[in-house]
Every structure is written in C-alpha cells, then in structure tokens.
Computed example of a mutant assay.
Amino acid sequence: MTLLLIVLGAALGAPLRYLADRAVQARHDTSFPWGTLTVNIAGSALLGFLTALPLGDGVMALAGTGFCGALTTYSTFGYETVRLMEEGARFHSVANAVASVVAGLGAAYCGMAIAQTIA
C-alpha cells in the first residue's frame, strides 16, 4: 500500500513540477534556471511543513516521499548547474548552487516553523 501511495503522489508531483518550471522559466529571458530553483524551494518548504506535523506514515508516503520527491528535482538542479558552468556562465552556476542549497534549507526550516506554530 505504501508503494502505491508514493506512486500516486509522484504522479501528481512530477507533472506539476514540469508545468511550474516551464511557467516560471517562460517569464525570464536568461539561462539561469529560475523554474527549477522555484520548484525546489517550494517543495522544500512543503516537505519541512509536512515533517513538523503529526502525520501518519501513509500521508507522508503520499505527500512527502511521493509528491514532494517528484516535485523537487536534484538531478535537474545538478544538470543545470553543470550546464551553466560548461557554457561559461560561472557566476550563474555558482549562484544557482548556493541559492538552491541555502534557500532550500531556509525554506524547509520556515515550513517547519510555520507548522509548529499552527499545530
């Protein structure tokens, strides 16, 4: 049952990641991966929020592992960071790496703090 919940969550998170990534990136005329950065920060905030709530294993499998796991994308982040470096956009490459890690951790912390405040 747990595997089915993870698959269901991922089936919702992956298309949402693609659509959100494309919508954000279409608004920027730059090679910087704003779309991936946005979905990774949003997913980190949501996962931080969920982990601070007293949720059952099924909900965490669906929403945390499945949905947030598919919404966020470390592989695309890594690929885009390397691509920027290979294209000679060193500043954007380093900025992407630093912003992704710092903002992702900060968003997860803020999500946890919000959940603790309202729970």
Rank of each mutant, 00 (worst) to 15 (best):
D21H: 10
A14I: 09
M1D: 13
P33M: 03
Y18T: 09
I41T: 14
E86D: 15
G88Q: 07
G56I: 08
T72P: 04
P33V: 03
A63R: 00
G13R: 05
T38Q: 03
L46A: 14
G9P: 02
L16S: 02
R22Y: 07
S93P: 02
G69H: 07
N96C: 08
T73W: 00
V7K: 01
T76G: 02
A11P: 01
M85F: 12
M60F: 12
L16G: 02
G35L: 03
N96Y: 13
N40P: 03
V102H: 07
V82L: 15
L46Q: 07
A99W: 04
L71S: 07
I6P: 00
M85K: 01
T30C: 09
T76N: 00
P15I: 05
D57A: 14
A10Q: 09
A107E: 06
N96W: 01
Q25Y: 08
P33D: 09
P33A: 07
A95S: 10
G9E: 02
R90Y: 10
V39N: 00
Y74A: 09
G69I: 09
T117L: 13
Q116Y: 00
L47W: 06
A95C: 03
A70Q: 06
Y18A: 08
I6V: 15
N96A: 04
G78C: 10
S100F: 04
N96G: 06
G111H: 05
T76A: 14
A23R: 14
R22K: 10
A42R: 00
A108W: 07
L47I: 15
L12I: 15
T76L: 01
G35M: 02
A20Q: 06
L37V: 10
S100C: 08
C68T: 10
P54Q: 09
V82A: 13
D29R: 14
G78E: 12
W34R: 04
